[in-house]
Design a protein around this nucleic acid. Structure first.
Lengths: 338, 338
DNA sequence: TTGTATGCGTTATCAA
DNA sequence: TTGATAACGCATACAA
């Protein structure tokens, strides 16, 4: 069943059929309805391959994320796919993992599929060593590249980020204002946003003129931290004799592990220990006491990313190259800010 | 840059270039390397649209899931996408939501994109009212349809499921053997697998010759149950004066809410109350005490689904229409099975 | 308002 | 082992 069949069925030329399909106005109402009826009756759908060949697009966007089962990325993928579909675009998903070569391969794969754009979801795509980002810049030579939670300054690359630095700064400030001095910062990612968060912590501490040893800033080496892994890190820190009355983390899961440690050690939260997470995942409501966390407005980020992309794809010159949204602190039971 | 350019560059015909690209053996080693060199030098990639038009496939599989941010579905999507990519297939993702019309629309959208097959992930696609499944059967008239965690008996439809019934039966049996008599069953889905689980619970109770009132089997009406919602349900049950010493749930999140209730009510788990979840999510390690749960072998299911699909696509007649895997009970701290 | 003819970049058939 | 050429199904420029 193709356009010729409809043409025969209705006695008009394929050009007219094509016009009807594409909603051209230069068709008489009579022929239009005749053609429409024939299409409906036969259940005809235009062949997207043929269409793609002619127009050089199949209205498909490539989405890259490290791991769609990571709750943060999973939500992002959900929002983005939704937004794209609303705009009549398909979503070609590629879970790249955290390995650089794999990322590069996935990008090549998507480009070879002739997607109209690529969206990189997650802060783990932008590397400090800038030449590792070359494959992204190169891709941007072919199609627009959108970054969700990452920044890269190059032509045809658009960034949408949350102001993680400000969020952690504010959290830290709240800890300090509430009388907490012996702070601990735990994080598990050296990504762009990971570094911004750390920066926020350091700045707040510095601005409050507090001296804090480097042993109080701890990196947990794993993308997929498990609660019990992180808990061990906390125990080790405590075992070294480092005292703390406030723990700020870059991720809810780490914060939960702190709560577990506290329970085991008989430390009362929030009475003698404040804990804050980041991302405002479901688990922040599952744990006991419920976790104070930072909502980084992922939905807003994703919406903005998609709508910017639509602007770019429709050659709207006004699309901003970089957009920063602010986060919101959700205070629950693991802190008592004054 | 197209096949003609390579043809000109090398002085051979496009037919020969095509042969080289597709690894045909009928090419002299000399021309092959010449062409290969030209391709590499120019960075040429075959146009997938043209190829698709000729071969009527773009090696792309449609994946439908209700909500890619649901942890269970998210993991499934991850495994499936991985498996497909290994086999050189792309994944066109569509998060359909739980509404029937939306599902149908998404299916139509995927088919219009001429995917080679559709994978429906999650037990929520198969409806009790069989005519609501017609759109799936119809789709199977065009392309193979794979079901992960759902069963539908029709031509060209392949099901991969976990034996949820047996798993819950076994859990319930363990509760009873451990002396628990006043059981509660909480669930939140009437899907195929949801019904199978309930069936398992009922059978185990019946086989143990225990009388259990219907008020002990409670449906929580929400796909995206939040801990606090479910907790309220548990409180309400307790408020009615219904006593229980064992709670079996269809989902970890519900089990966590039971733990929360128990803590509030001063009930000690597992000493005076056993609790079991289902799915073995991360949260089963986050809560306190850690949750006994059922690992439903999602990775195995997904692997099997993909490899079966590859068999089907390569016209392998031996592909099984239905495959059942057994689950595994992971005992943690919320039970003490004897 | 409608129809004719061409190009889009492949793969595959057939002939050489 | 190679090359010429016909499909594949559509959109569109141009002609009527």
């Amino acid at each position: 069943m193709n356009i010729y069949d409809i043409s025969k069925k209705t006695g008009v030329s394929i050009a007219t059929v094509s016009r009807v399909i594409n909603g051209s106005s230069n068709v008489s109402e009579k022929t239009r309805s005749k053609v429409l009826a024939a299409i409906k009756e036969s259940g005809y759908t235009p062949n997207v391959f043929a269409r793609g060949l002619g127009l050089n697009t199949m209205k498909t966007i490539g989405i890259m994320c490290a791991d769609s089962s990571d709750p943060y990325l999973a939500r992002a993928v959900y929002y983005i796919e939704h937004g794209l579909r609303k705009n009549n675009y398909g979503s070609l998903l590629s879970c790249t993992g955290y390995d650089h070569d794999a990322k590069e391969k996935c990008m090549a794969m998507l480009l070879s599929k002739r997607v109209d754009a690529v969206i990189l979801v997650g802060s783990n795509y932008i590397e400090k060593d800038d030449c590792l980002n070359d494959y992204i810049k190169n891709a941007a030579g072919t199609v627009p590249v959108m970054l969700v939670n990452g920044v890269l300054n190059a032509p045809n690359i658009y960034s949408t980020v949350c102001d993680d630095r400000a969020a952690i700064y504010e959290v830290t400030e709240s800890f300090i204002k509430s009388g907490k001095r012996d702070l601990l910062y735990l994080y598990n990612s050296h990504s762009y946003s990971g570094m911004k968060k750390l920066e926020g912590f350091r700045s707040a501490v510095k601005d409050a003129k507090i001296q804090l040893g480097e042993e109080r800033i701890n990196y947990i080496n794993s993308y997929n931290v498990t609660v019990n892994d992180a808990k061990k890190v906390v125990s080790d820190i405590a075992a070294k004799g480092i005292k703390f009355d406030g723990v700020i983390t870059s991720d809810d899961i780490i914060a939960v592990s702190v709560l577990k440690y506290a329970r085991d050690a008989g430390i009362s939260v929030p009475d003698s220990l404040f804990v804050a997470g980041y991302n405002n995942f479901d688990i922040s409501e599952c744990c006991e006491p419920e976790l104070t966390s930072v909502d980084n407005k992922l939905e807003t980020l994703c919406h903005h990313c998609v709508s910017t992309l639509m602007d770019v794809l429709s050659d709207n010159r006004s699309a901003p190259k970089r957009m920063v949204f602010s986060a919101e602190i959700i205070e629950r039971e693991t802190t008592k800010f004054i």
